[in-house]
Amino acid sequence: MNIGIQSNHADRAMTALTLRLQDEVFAIDAESVREILDVVPISDVPNAKAFVGGLINVRGRIVPLADLRLLFGMDRPPPDVNTRIVVIEVDLDGEPTIVAILADRVLDVTEIEAATIEEAPKIGMRWRPEYVRGIGKRGDEFIIIPNMGKIFTLEDG
């Protein structure tokens, strides 16, 4: 999975937005991030998959809101002052789609050296390996680089 990153970005670092979900740090390619919002009213979509159970209004555009915590088996406490909504662009079957994801807290924009990114181990992870594009390191901390395209297409099927 992560071969692609390494071959494409072998010579340069990945610029990523890092955010916290429960105890884990996730990194999202900064180029795919459209904007970061405070929590807005969320409309539930009855009978939709729980993972994309909501809709929000992003300046006149109706955008599905996904909760990655559900896929990664985390608790879902109600939003607090640190909760943010990150609006990103994801490629769904070749079609760029705007989706929003919930973040318990948005950390910063950082460079992750390509050399430090490793393929997700097949064992030692509670999560479906397809969801993880790679694991980066910053200091002593691991950073999970989720595979957004896979997450949304797999969950779509």
Partner: peptide, 22 residues
């Protein structure tokens, strides 16, 4: 609705109300 909600057939779409909610 986006492709992510293509399986929810009971809704033909969504709209934005006067107070900005969906």
């Amino acid at each position: 609705l986006s492709k992510l909600h293509a399986d929810v057939e009971t809704f033909s779409g969504a709209t934005i109300l006067g107070d900005g909610t969906v």
